[in-house]
Nucleic acid binder design. Structure first.
Lengths: 279, 279
DNA sequence: CGCTGAATTCCATATTATGGACATGAGTAT
DNA sequence: ATACTCATGTCCATAATATGGAATTCAGCG
């Protein structure tokens, strides 16, 4: 190598650039960089080399290795593109991904940090289904149980699950939930609060579902950007003053996003905030 | 390196092994081997090293590079597993995959080889929708047009699309299609033929839809193993004697499978032949 | 409290990846 | 036709990079 080519020298040129890795795997890292680069759409060899800050020759060799493994495709006159292997791997991975298992460590961390009870749940039909629960370290017990179903519109978790839904569905569920007994609430006021929750990508439960229990919840999104689950931190109202709820928002959202990332979600993902308000 | 470690020496040990690639990217290839190995389920470092036929030290370094990039996950007491990056890439890739575009080169090759008209189609509601057509080199013209819809039960393409459906759906569609005019046919006979098509993963059209036009069709499966499209080779009956239809079966199925592979399908894929016979 | 079976770190070595230069090929303008 | 351009593909001497054996740490377990 005639020219000393240090990674840091060219860092300014490279876009995604290599976080140099555990050192001793430059070739692998560069190969993965190529996969990333190629995901932005068809690209020519020269552009690819420029984007990665490496020699065309090197880029060509690595790209061809990826082509042979079907991670990348090359079409003359078009350029390098993602390959079918990614479809196969993605599907395989999706099949073997279980929200509960993925979320566990994150929920435990959040519970340890807040000392309160943490829940994980999904939508099942018109109800929220609790999939997991890590009890808090406080004397007050939360009565929820894994496997239990709760109304969507009156629990923090449920409302987080509904954040992407159309207003029509909100109304429908709200009326259904109100019909079944619980203390009367005003739809207009509820709607206003929901709109605020949507903006904040986080919801509250202010003793609506259970007296003296308040909670902060946030939705979990998968690779498609869809809400596939939600998490919540619940505690007795005495530990959940308004300011604490505000303070918890950050932690809860961060945990929800961390779980999402483990499900393939990324901020720059498809349908990042495109609310799918149908019917 | 004290010990001469040539790729071919250890090829007997390695399972998936490296198809040595374009030489000059050993590290990348080994990294990709790790991804493959890890997709079979959680695995310890030692087992991983054994499976790939390389040193634990090397394996560890490469695996960690992949972990940093989120292609692989490590959980103590469990082992190395696929990582969330594969979910993200898979989803991204799926979003940008278009059957027509992917199928084109394969259809052209098949048309060139057979000299007959080749079609690509999908199910739309209760009909087969033609998405692409490569005209044959024979004097006889096939009247179909891209964008056109045809009955599912009387065309070769349509029957290929139905190969995984439940018998109940077959009957329902058959009766609906018969109602709308065409010459009467016997359901029992049709059913028997369909069962044969299912076994052969290929269907025929014996002048049912259009007089003097016969065709051979096969389904295209994506990464999930589901039938997402079908292709057919059509020609005038004079060029389509029974023996030629049998002979074409291989080519048509191979082309359909090649398209499927470009859509992420693999023979060892989930739901490979598990017929989803519901309702 | 010392095993056992794992992951992780270290470092001298030579194998592997590198990139400059050159070759080829397919459109396109002349 | 013929030269030009912009693209991908190939070669090979060089040195930087990846390698793996050995030593180390870590976490359960008996």
């Amino acid at each position: 190598m005639k020219q000393t080519r240090s990674n840091t020298d060219m860092a300014s040129v490279a876009e995604k650039a290599e976080a140099k890795g555990p050192a001793g795997s430059q070739t692998l890292m560069r190969g993965l960089d190529i996969i990333d680069a190629v995901m932005d759409g068809p690209i020519t060899l020269a552009d690819l080399a420029a984007k990665l800050g490496l020699n065309r020759s090197t880029t060509h060799r690595l790209a061809n290795a990826l082509i042979e493994r079907r991670y990348v495709t090359f079409m003359p006159r078009i350029g390098y593109q993602f390959g079918p292997k990614l479809l196969a791997l993605g599907f395989l991975a999706q099949q073997r991904t279980d929200v509960v298992q993925v979320a566990r460590p994150h929920l435990e961390a959040l519970a340890a940090q807040t000392e309160d009870t943490v829940h994980l749940g999904v939508i099942e039909g018109d109800l929220a289904l609790y999939l997991d629960k890590i009890p808090g370290r406080r004397r007050v017990e939360i009565s929820s149980r894994v496997g239990e179903r709760q109304p969507l519109t009156s629990t923090g978790l449920g409302k987080a699950l509904l954040l992407d839904e159309a207003e029509a569905r909100w109304r429908q569920l709200f009326e259904r939930d109100q019909a079944s007994g619980s203390p009367k609430a005003d739809y207009a006021a509820w709607l206003e609060r929901m709109k605020g929750y949507v903006e904040a990508e986080r919801s509250f439960d202010l003793e609506e579902n259970e007296d003296l229990i308040r909670c902060v919840a946030a939705p979990v999104r998968d690779a498609s950007g869809r809400i596939v689950a939600a998490i919540s931190v619940s505690s007795a109202a005495q530990y959940m003053a308004d300011d604490r709820m505000q303070a918890l928002t950050g932690d809860v959202r961060e945990t929800a996003e961390a779980i999402g990332r483990d499900l393939g979600w990324s901020e720059t993902a498809p349908t990042p905030r495109a609310r799918t308000r149908r019917s």
